[in-house]
Amino acid sequence: MGDPLRIGVVGCGVISSTYLETAGRVPDLEVVAVADADPARARRAAETHGVRAASLDDLWADDEIEWVLDLTTPGAHAEVALTALENGFSVYNEKPLCATTAEARQVLEAAAEAGLAVGSAPDTVLGTGIQTARAAVEAGAIGRPVSATATMACAGHELWHPQPDFYYAPGGGPLFDMGPYYLTALVHLLGPVESVQAVARRPREVRTIASGPRAGEQVPVAVATHVTALAEHASGAVSTLVMSFDAPATRAMPIEVHGDEGSMVVPDPNTFDGAAEVRGTSGDWARLPDGAGYRGAARGFGLVDVSRSADRRTGRASAEVALHVLDVMESVIRAADEQRRVPVSSTCVVPPLVPLTG
């Protein structure tokens, strides 16, 4: 194993702790500095995780950094990524890649012109859960895949997040917040999406924060909070996607894939592990042993994967897949708004399977 990938973190909100914990326990990553528009928040993160806090200007000038890890809110992803590229850093964005596909394409064009790389969460798809399921599908465990269902239903993130505003602003909602996990998994399992149909609803105009110093404050809702979509994959399989912040709970499996010779239950794509289960046309469900993916993975393994590539730029948490997933989500909203079937303009190459590692 070579030298660790040296990263600078921009954005020290709630999700940053998970990434910094990963970087602190794996030899593949080294956090050079953390920065935030709120310097006090950067200092708190630095003190908690034993790294150095820096101003944004200092971080942009730090020539020790190879990759910038952008953990800002979706509306800032394009601006941060473009600034990182302008300063000579490759960049890895938290999901979604950007708030819009237009912004994402601008970022990828800038990276190509600069000879730099872009990656994007979610990297949960690189864990043993999804990778083992994918390996089984590719090995013919359920025959030819015909259909899939993907369901995420909860009552809304304002119940636990002290600053939930961005979840209900453009670039948020259950589709853009949670959809990347489910759609990225579906793309790895069944290939890219060619067209979509959808219905979207916004039952409430405001949400009430339930925790933290702003408890009781109302947040305006500017996006659909319940989305049901039908996606046609280039492989011929059809997926049904339900993403909702308007359901107290669900007992539906996160993802199920059905083929002409069997069915598969796929682990939660918002986690890295969990066992897939397979059942043939008769008999009982059987748990699959880990057969592919990074064992013990956590958020940040997209960059671990980059660090282990020959050029330290090529990773399986690819911007190409992230752009396609973003395009699918935008197409879903357009299909719902226009009440028609919408072709998805982009496609992607599914990255190679992760061998069982760790």
Rank of each mutant, 00 (worst) to 15 (best):
L183Y: 07
P254T: 02
V196C: 08
H226V: 03
V221R: 00
H233K: 05
V242T: 15
S235A: 14
V238P: 09
A252E: 15
Q197Y: 10
M243G: 02
P192D: 03
R207K: 13
L189A: 00
L230T: 15
D246I: 02
F245A: 09
S195N: 04
P220V: 02
T250S: 15
S195I: 02
G236D: 03
V223Q: 11
L186T: 00
T250H: 08
L183R: 08
R204S: 13
R214C: 08
A237G: 03
A210F: 08
E194A: 15
R204A: 12
A185S: 07
Q197R: 15
G191C: 06
L183M: 09
A252P: 06
P203E: 04
T184F: 04
A231C: 15
H226C: 08
A210H: 12
I255T: 04
P220H: 10
T228M: 13
G216I: 05
H226L: 12
S239H: 06
R214V: 08
T225W: 05
A252D: 15
T250C: 02
Q197V: 11
E194K: 11
S235I: 12
A234M: 06
L183H: 03
P192T: 02
H188D: 02
R201H: 10
T228Y: 12
R202Q: 14
T208L: 03
R207C: 07
P213R: 10
R202H: 04
R251L: 11
V206Y: 11
V196Y: 06
Q197E: 15
A200S: 08
D246K: 03
R214M: 14
P248L: 11
M243F: 00
L230N: 12
M253K: 15
V193H: 01
R204L: 14
V223I: 09
H188L: 04
T184V: 04
R201I: 01
E217Q: 15
V221C: 01
H233R: 07
V221Y: 00
V196P: 01
S195P: 08
A247G: 04
V219R: 03
V238W: 01
V227T: 09
L241C: 07
P254E: 03
F245Y: 15
R251G: 07
A252K: 12
S244F: 05
R214N: 13
S211G: 11
V193M: 01
L230D: 10
V221H: 01
V219T: 13
E232S: 14
R204M: 12
T240W: 11
E217F: 06
V199M: 10
L186C: 04
T184Q: 05
T250N: 04
R202I: 01
H188I: 00
T225R: 05
L241R: 05
T208G: 05
P213L: 05
M253C: 14
S239R: 02
V227I: 10
T240F: 12
H226W: 04
R204H: 14
L183K: 05
L189H: 00
V238C: 09
P220Q: 10
A249E: 12
V221P: 00
V227G: 07
M253W: 14
G212M: 02
L189S: 00
P254S: 07
A249V: 12
E217L: 11
